[in-house]
Design a protein around this nucleic acid. Structure first.
Lengths: 352, 352
DNA sequence: TTGTATGCGTTATCAT
DNA sequence: ATGATAACGCATACAA
């Protein structure tokens, strides 16, 4: 008796002295079943505490009604918000969302992807890890006809739909904002250029500098990761330069935070001497003592749209795999770390 | 051709002109299969890109090698760390972790739980939502012989193991720390007393006051939720009291943060005039301009231990459901929001 | 060492 | 409107 004893449609059929097929049909609201039997079955099922075995159903139908989401980390506000968006869009359609983390390791990403494919998932949403160089593993999923949708971090792959931010525009907007605040020597804390998103943010930054005729000092571009410490170190290195920056556009909020900490340690006034802009609009940016200007990626919308793309894809259950590319617009939230114009009111509020 | 065409052991058996059973055995490292066939099968399987259908396997074996985790939110550092701990402990044993969120709604909790049970999960880890009043839904899981383990937030239920923090001790320690810093009128921002954890923290607070002969002002206990705003409002209400507090012990970090913001707005010096202690040791507490003293719940350890309890439970695959209660010790991280003794060095660093 | 047959719980096809 | 039966892909008891 070490196995779970579950009630099956057979148990119900025996009890009612009808066939299992009838029970199944009754349970599935098959119109050919008389109202009487249908209700009887429903009642008995409830009494016996019958639970449909979705494993069996899935094996039969080939559909599990489960989708998988693979993200680097779940405890980043951005990713958990995207997941929230996917859930909200998909739950009403009866889908259940399985969440997996890659911890920024391709190895894990591949393992999770295979695990999901083995469990016969109906679709996969994925934001690639920093260490992902190619999409061979993704192609396997495609080969099995499992719809896969990239969001935010993608690697261009034929046949794969994606929902991403216009990171070029975001980089441009952030830089342009700094220029409009009067900054002329704008540094950039870049993320790993392997990832399209960081490459695009960087290129947007460059484009804005060019548009406004500011010269671009390569020394002022520092590679950072998403850790606070790397933002601190970046400032250390920047302030070793001949020419000190008067603004920092960071491709991530954590690095921006680290940068701010180091600037404060050096007694450099923000935003008077140096303006700082972060990226992702993590909640903490807003409730810091010195609230940080940051770029919002509308993550929940991103999730919703990714889910919609998925739904379209499974609706047309043709062999034709439609490839859809959605690009969302970023939104800049200007706060005190760069908002020189809003400084006065801010000072009244913060009372440092 | 709208169905996924998957390679099965049958396809392999046909190709090699052996029986499907042999293929299955070879794939499962059955020792009775000759090395030659085993290797041949392995090679062919790889060539044909065979993927085991875990659905079928699960249906047969009654085990899915999947476990479910239900938490209120995934983007709280505490919960995502617990999940990380569970993953690390369980992955080596071949288990895959399915993560679900209740968003603090019983309704969702029940839905997620049932969805997990329907997918024939092997075990469930759960931290109940704030709105969960009873465990009828949990008892259903038990009735199906699915091991269920509470962590952190539990509701006492016969037959259910749990891994929790010693919240009473934590409340006591936090309050005692404030007393030792010289505070005499300690307010408490409580969470919903429905949840054991908040009740225990509150009682620990009371116990410490009593031990040190401080009188307990009921006006100084304010109900808050986990939002920043509720911490702000709490301070507003506290400062309407006849007797103003000289310390605040908050049962959550977000409320503590809100309290600090409001105190600053009122130009009240922290920690000189008022000391503040939070709870959960969320990462942001450490990197605030004024780092916040907070109680660490060793979440990753909590996850690891919960996983171990689960593994024990499934190892003894008897009908006997062992009930194990693990209680972890909290750890206080003293920072500047309450560390009057460490203030001088801190001041040098922070340079407000 | 390998093959045959059966069942896990459902649903769909074909009868009736 | 309902019943009998096969099939989804796999693993195993029983044979050989």
């Amino acid at each position: 008796m070490n196995r779970k004893e579950k009630v099956t449609i057979y148990d119900i059929s025996k009890k009612l002295d009808i066939s299992a097929a009838t029970v199944s049909r009754a349970l599935n609201q098959n119109p050919k079943i008389s109202k009487k039997t249908r209700e009887l079955v429903a009642k008995t099922a409830k009494e016996m505490n019958y639970k449909q075995n979705r494993l069996a159903q899935a094996l039969k139908s080939g559909r599990t009604n489960n989708v998988g989401v693979i993200v680097p980390y779940i405890n980043r506000s951005f990713f958990s918000s995207v997941i929230r968006g996917i859930e909200e869009e998909l739950n009403p359609h009866g889908y259940h969302v399985i969440i997996c983390q890659s911890h920024e390791e391709v190895k894990n990403e591949i393992k999770q992807l295979n695990a999901l494919l083995n469990t016969q998932i109906d679709g996969i949403f994925m934001s690639v890890s920093k260490t992902t160089q190619n999409t061979d593993h993704v192609k396997k999923a495609l080969a099995e006809n499992t719809p896969l949708i990239f969001f935010d971090r993608k690697i261009e792959t034929p046949g794969v739909s994606s929902v991403v931010l216009d990171d070029f525009k975001a980089g441009f907007m952030a830089t342009e904002h700094l220029i409009q605040e009067g900054c002329k020597k704008i540094a950039h804390l870049s993320g790993d250029i392997n990832l399209e998103i960081y490459k695009n943010r960087y290129e947007g930054y460059i484009a804005a500098l060019e548009k406004y005729g500011l010269n671009h000092n390569p020394e002022h571009v520092i590679l950072t990761n998403s850790k606070i410490e790397s933002g601190q170190q970046a400032v250390v290195r920047l302030w070793e330069c001949e020419e000190k920056p008067d603004a920092i556009f960071s491709a991530g909020d954590y690095a921006a935070l680290g940068a701010i900490q180091e600037l404060k340690r050096r007694n450099i006034k923000i935003p008077e001497e140096v303006c700082v802009v972060g990226f992702s609009n993590e909640p903490f940016t807003k409730y810091m003592e010195l609230p940080i200007t940051s770029m919002d990626q509308t993550p929940q919308l991103m999730g919703k749209i990714a889910a919609q793309v998925f739904l379209e894809q499974v609706k047309e259950n043709l062999a034709v795999s439609i490839e859809k590319k959605v690009v969302l617009s970023p939104e800049l939230f200007v706060r005190e770390s760069s908002g020189r114009s809003i400084l006065k009111t801010a000072a009244n509020k913060a009372l440092l």
